[in-house]
Design a protein around this nucleic acid. Sequence first.
DNA 1: CAGAGACGATACCCGTCCGGTATCGCCGCC
DNA 2: GGCGGCGATACCGGACGGGTATCGTCTCTG
Lengths: 280, 280
Amino acid sequence: METRELRYFIAVAEELHFGRAAERLGMAQPPLSRAIQQLERRLGVTLLERTSRAVTLTEAGAVLLREGRAALDAVDAADRRTRRAAVAGAPALVLVTKAGATGELLPKLLDAYAAEPEAVAVDVILCGPGEQERLLRDGRADVALLHLPFDSATGFDTEDLRTEGQVAVLPAGHPLTARPHLRMSDVTTLPGLPMPRWPRLDGTYPDGPGPQVRDQTQLLQLIALGRAAAIMPESARPHRGEDVAAVPVLDAPPVTTVIAWPPHSRSRALAGLVRAATRL
Amino acid sequence: METRELRYFIAVAEELHFGRAAERLGMAQPPLSRAIQQLERRLGVTLLERTSRAVTLTEAGAVLLREGRAALDAVDAADRRTRRAAVAGAPALVLVTKAGATGELLPKLLDAYAAEPEAVAVDVILCGPGEQERLLRDGRADVALLHLPFDSATGFDTEDLRTEGQVAVLPAGHPLTARPHLRMSDVTTLPGLPMPRWPRLDGTYPDGPGPQVRDQTQLLQLIALGRAAAIMPESARPHRGEDVAAVPVLDAPPVTTVIAWPPHSRSRALAGLVRAATRL
DNA sequence: CAGAGACGATACCCGTCCGGTATCGCCGCC
DNA sequence: GGCGGCGATACCGGACGGGTATCGTCTCTG
């Protein structure tokens, strides 16, 4: 099976329409039809059920869509990491983490690693929630800082770095800020202070009462304005009070920050960074 | 990057010899040379350093060898799992585990799962130590029973099933068998009873004094003959005494049996099997 | 020191296969 | 019943993969 065939099939399986898939691939429809037929013939498997009105996935097609995406990610990762490895003076490691979520842990880690004799240049990518896994999987990043249980570390090697409780972040002066600590139920049901809605991976937002937010800054501003409340790890709490206050939430699930990397990529540089992280 | 190019490069990178690699690939040497040049040109990266006497990997080449193997495994997995998904009546799940190492856990699991209403056929593969990961990675198997810390579950999702201590297995009548329990140091230094040597993944054996063994049966026979001793999980201990005796080893690392599967393959059947396993 | 041998690169040729255009067959819908 | 949308088929040209023959270079040897 060639990656070209995989790319073709995935386009068709996602569009469920040969014409649109061909357009997306920048080619004409007939060779695409033929390529899919050939793929089916070589596999000995029917991947798509076609009528002149609709195209649907067979069960085997659904399997190939799932597995094929993972395989293409792996091929892309090989491509990207190889290219990066060849550029002299380029960052030898790319670290990805959620924007504004690691507090002082990230600078500490970078400093500690940079102090090592064999340290190499480390690039940092800050991205939105949930994107880290994809970057790690398709080779745009080599290592990530993740927050369990929010992020999923499935398929990666990890080392635990820190476990912490969560705090409720509320507008300064809100009655609850006088309390020494809170419970989840105190915070999730506040009238007039709904929890914000974060975008899904595809950019759409779930339904609900809360305001839509894209990043930490927006969130803090909304809280300061008295339009929202949020629960976040202690270390993500803003330190200089910008009209917001933080109160520990006793029964919020603890958050573990882990350093994660693809299990097969045990380069010297990566090993050094992981070592530096675990010594923090 | 096409899988054909990856296969070619990996062959050359492993052989470090274009002629032998071409032979292994069943093709002539010149087109192979050209394909590698083209791959290097497209990547914009030198992968191999050639003289007329030797071929060596560049750093980027080493990266592509590692990453490319993983990528090819992922493509092969997509191929195999798609083929299997299409065959009606074929086993919908393939479980792999080390031959003779799971004791009664495996039949219990299969029975428990088979009793479920939506159970599908499960094939079982028994293989040598260390091979499970590869089968899981390249799609010949869907789920595995692994023994931490002996096997590595990196890159897979897992659920813990059981943790147990280890026992020393000794020839019946050996003085140590009278003791109620032992320490590692008691067993590893026994004069005339060396620990056996297991084959590596490539089939070669490490150097050392112990006899070479390939499976559990050989091992037990050698122990019964008074030629070896071994340390193994309690559940792997032979139950009908075949001239061997087992004594708990207090300070041996505990062994955890886990059920493991590729993180992206969350099929209904697999989920059912994992559920049955965790309920045991 | 010259010649043989090993090895990767180059030159050149042929067949296959990929991709394009034109068109067909089928089906739902005004 | 004709029109339009959609996937399949037919056919063609060009690119590319793979084969054989040969070269350039380096090393070892008689």
